[in-house]
Amino acid sequence: MKTRTHVINLTEAVLEMVLAEPVDAVNSGIQSQLFPAGHQLTEDSLLQLALSHIEFISILEPDYRSSAQVAIDAAVAAHRVMEIFSGADLSNPVMAVLFDQVLTYRSTQ
């Protein structure tokens, strides 16, 4: 199954979601890993995340869209990004990198 990565607030997390990235917690200045990437959320892990003051997690979300829909969504996102950057000087290397990154991010959301 196709998946995509999505950052969500802990309130949006539900059982059996899969972490896309490890979750670290800091206790008394010491950083330690709470859960590794690939961990499937359980009631216990959700409680532990809340009590560790974790607010946001990155999860792998099933992507049920057809290939055609993915292409349409990406095109709509790209059109909007180009509109936003229409007055930007993309010969400026920093602007060009920002444009690329925003385009990549928004096209894959």
Binding site: T5, H6, V7, I8, N9, T11, E55, F56, S58, V94, V97, L98, Q101, V102, T104, Y105, Q109
Partner: peptide, 18 residues
């Protein structure tokens, strides 16, 4: 270092949404 803001886009978007 080369500009790399990709790691914060998801978190910023999620935080603003919340």
């Amino acid at each position: 270092a080369r500009l790399d803001l990709m790691p914060v886009f998801g978190r910023i978007t999620a935080r603003v949404r919340h």
